[in-house]
């Protein structure tokens, strides 16, 4: 399938001199779910901010054949939606419904269309009837889901999700994975940043690993990557795990979401 996102030689440096991204190149295929993993501070969020055109680095980014520049920015943001890491920043309107309708109204859709799309988005994340609620009074998990609905209502073809399951309990996480399955079945292209290897294993088609050098070191099928223990260890995604069974000290990889045999 054709590439929907093409990033080549992307560099970004924060104003204070911190290197954010270091020569990043990769491609994303239409309809696939690419999970981006990497230790803290390896530039994953910086990459997303570059993709959506908030930060401007050097290098080339192409989305559906359109080069990311001032002229195309609006069109690209119509195709690509981003959910920020913290829901308090994503939900800035007095009520949930105001927030969910914010995007489509800005796109200039008519009211019927906006209402329909917003209700559909709320239903998809399981928040029917939350429209009139105040965002501040939602639980964290509900906030996270509402934040996704605010982007889904714009019906983007590509979704960037920055740590969507951080801070969620197991039940909310599995509910969230179901939402992702629905989105996948709708043919949307998903880019997900996460530290959750369990989530990765559940939803990823391909996995991209970011290294401490702030660039991708590996990209590949999720089986390939998740079973490459050396690669994960080298990039601080797993750590050695020691514990005792009676008299024997036993050392093995520590991977969340994996149950091991003794």
């Amino acid at each position: 399938m054709a590439s929907i996102i093409k990033v080549s030689n992307l560099n970004y440096c924060y104003p204070d001199g911190t290197i954010g991204l270091n020569d990043v190149s990769f491609e994303v295929k239409e309809g696939e779910t690419l999970v981006i993993i990497g230790a803290n501070g390896t530039g994953k969020s910086t990459l997303f901010l570059n993709l959506i055109g908030i930060l401007e680095g050097s290098g080339n980014i192409e989305v559906m054949g359109l080069a990311l520049n001032k002229n195309n920015l609006k069109n690209i943001r119509k195709i690509m939606g981003m959910v920020f890491q913290s829901p308090d920043e994503q939900l800035f309107c007095p009520t949930v419904m105001d927030d969910v309708t914010f995007g489509p109204l800005n796109l200039g859709w008519n009211n019927d269309l906006v209402t329909k799309a917003s209700e559909k988005a709320l239903e998809l994340v399981g928040l029917e009837g939350f429209g009139t609620r105040t965002s501040y009074h939602l639980s964290f998990g509900e906030k996270k889901r509402a934040a996704i609905a605010t982007v889904l209502s714009m019906e983007p073809r590509i979704l960037l999700l920055d740590e969507p399951t951080s801070g969620l309990d197991p039940r909310s996480t599995s509910m969230f994975i179901n939402i992702l399955y629905t989105l996948k079945s709708q043919g949307k292209t998903l880019l997900i940043v996460t530290h959750d290897l369990f989530l990765t294993q559940e939803v990823a088609d391909r996995v991209l690993v970011f290294s401490e050098e702030k660039k991708p070191v590996a990209i590949g099928n999720y089986n390939e990557i998740l079973n490459n223990y050396d690669l994960l260890l080298r990039n601080n995604l797993v750590h050695q795990h020691r514990h005792r069974h009676d008299e024997v000290i036993h050392e093995h990889e520590h991977r969340h979401g994996y149950i091991h045999k003794h």
Binding site: L49, I52, I54, K74, R77, K78, G81, M82, F84, S86, E89, Q90, F92, F102, G103, N106, L107, T150, V151, M154
Partner: peptide, 13 residues
């Protein structure tokens, strides 16, 4: 600043 980013990515003008 972040809120503003979240707003412009959703077409705020």
């Amino acid at each position: 600043e972040k809120i503003y980013s979240a707003m412009i990515t959703r077409g705020f003008n």
